[in-house]
Design a binder for these strands. Structure first.
Lengths: 108, 108
DNA sequence: TATGTTTATCGTATATTTGCGATATAAAAT
DNA sequence: ATTTTATATCGCAAATATACGATAAACATA
């Protein structure tokens, strides 16, 4: 694209889009799923569950971190990740404010 | 990327990712917002509200259609769009099944 | 100190998305 | 029948995302 027009939109739209973007790849959804189930939390274990190389998984983890959907702590040479439920709750509120109206009519 | 690995993931992960991808651009969130508010529904009116060219808006509308988030009907020379709330409800169910567990502990 | 283990980052190739102008299409109006 | 109006699609350029191997960094262990 010639110019990036994203910054021309309002803050709530940008926030929702960023949240959705973080969820817009099945690998990241899968990561969040195993973290939510508390099956695993160490990076290396996540890599074993996914059909991707270690560097690729690390990249997806970084994106989830940047979006605030997970948090990580260093545990010796390993990294432990878990879901940041506060962020999920926050976006659920924004989402509802946007779309969950009482009047769900159609005009066509 | 060398190879597209998306098809290696399970169906629920793919569905959630597709839904999120449809919401992953502020223009599409903005379109859904004005449709939800029932301010406008005609394509040309949507174009006036957004800071994008007509062809670009038409492309975003097509993506929302493909994702099943909106539906459109031809009204003479115009096109009328509105939100498909059934799809929203369906994805809310999937989303909750994934992430809304009773036990939201952290391991780190 | 040297070595192995675990993870993050860099560089790079390729795929996809975004955006627009130009054009096609279809209906309405003149 | 021609022109106008409204929208979708095509073709292209530029930006982003995806994926991996190689390498760096940080720690534990021999």
């Amino acid at each position: 694209m010639a110019i990036n027009k994203k910054q021309e939109f309002a803050e709530p739209e940008l926030m929702l889009a960023d949240f959705a973007k973080a969820l817009s790849h099945p690998a990241r959804v899968a990561i969040l799923k195993v973290l939510a189930e508390q099956k695993v939390c160490i990076c290396g274990e996540i890599v074993e569950v996914l059909p991707l190389a270690q560097s690729t998984v690390s990249q997806h983890l970084k994106e989830l971190l940047n979006a605030g959907l997970i948090q990580g702590t260093v545990d010796g040479p390993k990294s432990c990740y878990c879901i940041n439920w506060e962020t999920f709750a926050r976006f659920e509120t924004i989402f509802k404010a946007f779309f969950q109206q009482t009047n769900k009519q159609r005009c066509c």
